[in-house]
Design a protein around this nucleic acid. Structure first.
Lengths: 242, 242
DNA sequence: CGCTGTGTTGAGGAAGATCAAGCGCCGTGG
DNA sequence: CCACGGCGCTTGATCTTCCTCAACACAGCG
């Protein structure tokens, strides 16, 4: 975790930028968010944020760092279901006593806070709704990735998605972005073995599409790559914003 | 579609049974639902209910028949993302002008109605929330299925899930239930080719675990099979009801 | 300085895809 | 009534992708 910043180093901007980018927030919303940020706490890498089958605590907002949602089978096989990036919601449900459908752990050191309730402001509620719709769309992406793409395609498709998502909170610099997952964890996300993932990564390097070292990924020509893979940007609302 | 009942033949029970099983509904909720049922309409098999990228019309409730959510890649590869069974919600979102993240088509002839708004009653809102949480849990199931299970495991795991879901609306009879998907469509759901799926099905037949013919599936000993696969029932709430 | 975790490479094997053909069933039209 | 055609299911042969097992290199860290 060499390159994972300490929790104290995180700017609060990414989360605010993402939510505000989903839909313009009003004064009560930003005020509530800033107050929530003030009560944020840090969770070190590899620690549990949620345990499958246990009751989900209050909805939380990820302010900095990466977390992952996964399931483990009885024989040890592991599937990484999705990733949580800065500005994304963890465990927001509308029903009583929700149970976690998966584990969640911190991948890097992580900064989280309690999410202000949607009743705070209609604008905040709208931002949450959009965030959850995006989350669902990412799950659908993951399903088609695992079901119908080859190993190499899966890797590149995932990286393109992450680039797009990080861009929403200002954490992508062109085709470059932090990528704290080990190859092992990446393989678990893509339904591959780490050995095979490694070979696919080499292949992507040799074609020049990918530079991946020291927890940092650079995609040469993300737009062209997306076109080649037949991947288009995720949109969940016909409105002017996202 | 020989065995698909005509839309007119559907009882309205399944949907009501499912929703009421999620959380006990009150008088306003059941009244609103019955009124919505009265305005239900029929969509023939293979017709579109929703188109990817287009704006989602009002939220709908599936009263009878099966529908499927899927994506198609540019080169024709197809991934069936999830299934909609009687009593399940289609296209309910909390934000303005939602865009469909996938296609939805009717697999059998289908009976649908507009879903009464959640504001109708807090009980109805709770039922919707639980329904959506279950839907998310099924997506997670699908992800681990595609990512980490073998072909044979995928088939049996999916069938176990469908049995459980149909049981919620009273459409499963022990280990037996209607299964209107072709092998081709089933393969698309499981990320396999139809040829390979066929072989896995034969294998399951030979071990006696599965009887699948004429759009009808029977699982011998679903509980034992679930145990063998390490699969446990889906629960999304710690409350007394599901 | 040795340990552990992560990435890399090789050789061989298994799961699943592809290509191709045939069969039964049913609806359609002559 | 029968011939035809299409669709869904089944089977065989061959090829590719991905997995398994094993070893080693390298870096960070106690």
């Amino acid at each position: 975790m060499r390159n994972a910043p300490k929790a104290g180093e995180y700017a609060l901007d990414p989360a605010l930028k993402r939510l505000n980018g989903l839909t313009p927030l009003d004064e009560p919303a930003t005020a509530a968010l800033r107050q929530a940020f003030a009560g944020a706490w840090r969770v070190p890498a590899a620690h549990e944020l949620q345990q499958e089958g246990k009751e989900v605590p209050k909805a939380r907002l990820l302010l900095g760092g990466w977390a992952a949602r996964f399931r483990i089978l009885e024989d040890g096989r592991r599937q990484l279901i999705s990733l949580f990036l800065p500005g994304e919601l963890i465990g927001m449900y509308d029903h009583a006593q929700p149970l976690a459908a998966s584990h969640v752990t911190a991948i890097t050191d992580v900064l989280i806070c309690t999410a202000p309730p949607p009743e705070t402001s209609p604008r905040l509620a709208e931002a949450y709704a959009l965030s959850r719709a995006l989350e669902e769309a990412y799950l659908l992406n993951q399903i088609t990735r695992l079901g119908r793409l080859s190993g190499l395609e899966r890797l590149l498709d995932l990286l393109l998605e992450l680039r797009e998502r990080l861009d929403r909170c200002g954490l992508a610099d062109g085709g470059s972005f932090p990528f704290p997952l080990t190859q092992e964890a990446t393989a678990d996300a893509l339904g591959l073995t780490s050995v095979h993932l490694n070979r696919m990564a080499q292949q992507a390097r040799q074609t020049g599409d990918l530079d991946w070292r020291a927890k940092q990924v650079t995609l040469r020509d993300p737009a062209g790559l997306a076109r080649k893979l037949g991947r288009n940007e995720v949109r969940v609302s016909a409105g002017p914003a996202s």
